[in-house]
Design a protein around this nucleic acid. Structure first.
Lengths: 131, 131
DNA sequence: ACCTAATACCTCGGGCAACAAGGTAAATGT
DNA sequence: ACATTTACCTTGTTGCCCGAGGTATTAGGT
């Protein structure tokens, strides 16, 4: 497509690429680390795979861009929360697989708890004033 | 003195001001706008009141600092989502009350929906991998 | 065989929310 | 009386995320 599909008429349903995108980005901010670690907790993945996977989950709310993902992975690696390993798999272009470390799991647990607390607090707040 | 009380020995109990604070801040990012609008939806409040109120809710997860709140209120006002009015109330130092506008309510509805979607998506993701 | 798209990795610059730190002044508490 | 809390504000810094760009391999279409 080169120019972007864009959905000339309207959005069929997912894809709120308007001003709502700013909102979404701000809201979802900080959750990417949790999302990434959470996915890596069940099994190792390579970067691109991770990106696609999160992009599909939940109607795109968790979408993460390359310019966000790769720096994030490097930060996590530097922090010792994940480890990286190039894997050839019989292809000339190897993939870089990331695995979570024990420290990463501990960190994930904290993040999950923090997230749960936030969701609960916001839930109470929002329930106070119905729709 | 004058330097800040600071709790010379240690924290009495709430206040995870360690490295966990960074986490919390990043996670909660973007939720402040939602939180503020949500509170104002039920009734008008002045800035300081808003700050204290959010600070107590949910064990401090929604805590918001002055340096964050006031600029936020001004942004929301500029955007026409809230309106401000100085009210004397018989005191020489008047308070600045903020009220939500119809546009603000519409915006709040979008934010709420976006938040709900995020929470649901993260919920699914986290459930895939138990603790 | 050619060419386009998708895959797969990366980096640099800018935008922006949140904070830290600082300031002013009135109200309240001790 | 003095200190603390209330109540408003601004400026500078930090750090996540993204846009835009770059490279190279692999798959698909004609």
């Amino acid at each position: 497509m080169s120019k972007r599909p864009v959905n000339v008429g309207e959005w069929p349903e997912p894809v709120p690429a308007g001003p709502a995108a700013r909102l979404r980005r701000e809201l979802a901010r900080g959750t990417t680390e949790l999302a990434v670690l959470s996915v890596l907790a069940s099994q190792r993945r390579y970067g691109y795979e991770l990106m696609k996977r999160l992009g599909q989950a939940g109607g795109g709310v968790l979408e993460i861009k390359e310019g966000t993902l790769y720096p994030l992975l490097h930060r996590l690696e530097d922090a010792g929360l994940i480890t990286a390993a190039w894997e050839a798999e019989g292809r000339s272009r190897p993939r870089k697989y990331y695995s979570i470390t024990p420290e990463g799991r501990a960190h994930l647990a904290v993040l999950r708890a923090e997230w749960a607390a936030l969701v609960e607090a916001m839930g109470h707040l929002l329930d106070e004033e119905p729709t």
